[in-house]
Structures are given as structure tokens and as C-alpha cells.
Design a protein around this nucleic acid. Structure first.
Lengths: 209, 209
DNA sequence: GTACCAATAGACAACTTGTCGGTTAGAGGT
DNA sequence: ACCTCTAACCGACAAGTTGTCTATTGGTAC
């Protein structure tokens, strides 16, 4: 009947269920009761481990982003790898699809999930910008690229890719490709790179489905 | 006691109160009861004019955006005005601060208002992109600027300015200026314009407070 | 003055989230 | 083997939410 578990184990169990439900039905459309029922615990148990529903969301997001940032930083900061390769590999590691593993993108792009999306975006950018800034600065010092303000330029690129490529499902195949090509070309332009220098490496990262 | 009003009048009355409350307290933090109480109408009256709370939000946003788009399009499409002036005037007309008149930006940037923010952003961009695309195409045909994909380039610029400059309050004065300068410079770069060609005209639009 | 209907009222059902006092499993001491 | 203590758990409940439904009324048209 009554099963007692270690606190961290139960916490993760709750986060697992919450993640699945939030990502498939959406945050607003998932009640705490849904979570309770699925796990088979009581109301009090949930609120023993978390202070609020939003607290669950925050913990869930942090758990997801920690993994992304860990992966990305390992690549982005590895100076033994050439800058251009580091760049594409970092973009790959930080990419949308990897965010939740099984996150249904159709859910993500709905306005009803705006809270989740906004929180993710804000925290992800906050952590990724320093990594990519470092990368760009390395590229600049090696004469591979140039920009007056690496931080704000990368912010613009990350913000755009994160927003537009999350909502990719709403576009036709043709539009998708056009958007990806424009993005890659604009990245080259902003970083003063030669036309086409990023194309070959970046295209498969954003456009493969 | 019981006051009967014309439907559109009552609708606008509800939207007025909703706009003030949503923009000061936030959407989630405002209950339909708050709106009812303030106007002095009954539950049934509200739901006679709107189908749901979100319906009120949608109508409110449309009312605000219609005005912005109207103002912006009048300027953006006026071919009797030089392209560069049209551009800066259009940016001014479409700018954040004018969004709600008295919208408290501190509220807007909170994650709790993500739904409102996301809906506004999505619909605003959808309407503004065609206007600015036309503007850029005019600029290109006059040899003032150049880009391979006006639509996606302007999408990137609008998305960035809309997101970052909405959240401006969280930055220090120094950071603000740096962000604005970087944005203007990156706009010039993306449109292949000469360095500084937008600075004088655009700086006061984004940086004046 | 009567008939009609758009606009209003407010009780109510069905859910929410978060709280709180009480309960128990099981680890650690004796 | 028995106590003790507490981390983990339970579930009833308070307080609030949105949306529905039936009944009512003010004004307009005839």
C-alpha cells in the first residue's frame, strides 16, 4: 500500500512524470492531480517534495538544461578542436530537438506552453551565451571571423534560432529550407565570414528531418 | 441598479478594464472576478460577451496590435517619403513602449506573462514582417541596402528587438547602450549598409529613456 | 400596452492549487 | 526483540478559479 522512498528518488520520479505530461499535454493542461494519480501518491507527498506546481516546472527545466549545457560546454570549450568544428558541434549539442528527448514540438510551439518556452529560452540563453561568446572570441583571435560585439551578436543568433526553429513545424518544407539557408547566410554575414564557409557544416545540423 | 448597455460598448468597457489589470498585475494574476467586480457586472454578463478568459486576452491584444499595425503601415507604405526615413519612423511606430500606452514593462518581462508576451509577439511579427519586407525591398531597388532574403532577415531583426528591448529593464544603463549599438550595427551589417548609416537616425528611437 | 429579445443576473458545478494535522515505515540505538 | 524518532507519506479541506445555465429585465418596435 504505502511505499516509502528516498527523497531524491521520489523527486526524480515526480519530475519524470511531470516532464512527460508537461511536454505532451502542456503545463497549463496538466493538473497536479494528473501527476499524483499517475504516480499513485497523495497530494501531501507531492507538496512535501515541491513547494508549488511551478516549482516542479522549474526543477524539470533545470534538469533538462543542465544536461544540454553540460554537453555543449564540453565541446565548446575544448581548445584542442578547431574552432569551426567546435562551433558546429556546439550548435548540434545545444539544438532544440535534444531538449527534452521526447518533447512533442507541436506542444512546445503552442501559446499555451509559453511559460515553459519562455523559462527554457531565458535560462538556456543565459548559460549558452558565455560559451558561444568564448568560441567566437577564439575564432576572432585566429582571424576566422570578426564582430565588434560577440556577446550581443551571438545572443541575436541564438535567440533567433531557438525561437524560429522551435516553431519549425508550422512551416512547409520549402519555407523551412529557405529559413535555414537565410539563417546560415546571415550568421556568416554577421561574423564577417566568407559566403558559404558555414553552409556545408551547418546545413545538416538544422536541416535534416 | 441594473444597467443595460449596447453590446460593443460593454465589450469595450470589459476590454478596457481587462487591459489595465492584465498589464499591471499580469494575466494569470488577474481573475475574471477581478474584472467583474471592477466594472460592477455579473459573471453571466462577462460570459455573454466573451466565451472565455483567454478570449478576452485575445480581443485585448488584437485591439492593441490593430492600432500599432495601422500606424506603422501608414508610414511604412508611404512611398512619397524616403526609404531611410520611412524605416526609422516605422520602427518608432512599431516600438515596444507604444504597445499598451501604460503597460508596465516590469510586468511584461516576467515569465508569468509569457502567454501574453508570446501571443503579442507572434501576431505582431506576422503583421509587421510584410510591411518591413516591402520597405527593405524598396531600399534594395534604390541601391540603399542589400540582402538575399529580406523576409527572414527582417524577421530576425524584429524578433530580436522585440524580445531584448522588452526585457530592457533588467539591464544596466551601460548594457542597454551597448545592446542598442550592437543591434544597430548588426542591422547595418545584415543589410550591407555603410557603417554608421543608421546610427544617427536609429539611436534615439531605441535609446532615449 | 404588449410582445419580443438582447443584455443582465447570480447560483452552481466542477476543478484548481496549496495547507495542515495526523499516520507510518524503517533506520539506529539499546 | 523492542523502543524511539523522524523522514516520508496521507487525505480531508479551505479558498479560489473558470465556465454554464436558467431565470429575469430593460428597451425597442409595432
Amino acid at each position: 500500500m504505502r511505499v516509502v522512498k528516498d527523497a531524491t528518488e521520489r523527486r526524480n520520479e515526480i519530475l519524470d512524470v511531470a516532464e512527460r505530461l508537461f511536454c505532451t499535454r502542456g503545463y497549463d493542461q496538466t493538473s497536479t492531480n494528473d501527476i499524483l494519480a499517475e504516480i499513485g501518491i497523495a497530494r501531501g507527498t507531492l507538496y512535501y517534495h515541491f513547494t508549488s506546481k511551478e516549482d516542479i516546472l522549474d526543477a524539470m527545466i533545470d534538469r533538462i538544461l543542465d544536461e544540454i549545457v553540460r554537453r555543449t560546454s564540453r565541446i565548446a570549450l575544448d581548445e584542442s578542436v578547431p574552432v569551426l568544428e567546435r562551433l558546429t558541434q556546439s550548435v548540434l549539442a545545444a539544438n532544440v530537438d535534444t531538449k527534452t528527448g521526447d518533447m512533442i514540438l507541436e506542444q512546445m510551439h503552442k501559446p499555451q506552453n509559453a511559460l515553459m518556452h519562455a523559462k527554457m529560452q531565458e535560462r538556456l540563453l543565459k548559460q549558452l551565451i558565455p560559451l558561444f561568446t568564448k568560441l567566437i572570441e577564439d575564432g576572432i583571435s585566429q582571424g576566422l571571423m570578426q564582430t565588434d560585439d560577440p556577446e550581443n551578436t551571438i545572443e541575436m543568433l541564438l535567440l533567433y534560432s531557438n525561437t524560429v526553429f522551435d516553431d519549425m513545424i508550422v512551416y512547409s518544407e520549402e519555407e523551412k529550407k529557405k529559413k535555414v539557408l537565410a539563417f546560415i547566410r546571415n550568421t556568416e554575414i554577421l561574423l564577417h565570414m566568407e559566403k558559404g564557409s558555414l553552409l556545408e557544416a551547418m546545413l545538416p545540423v538544422f536541416y535534416r528531418k
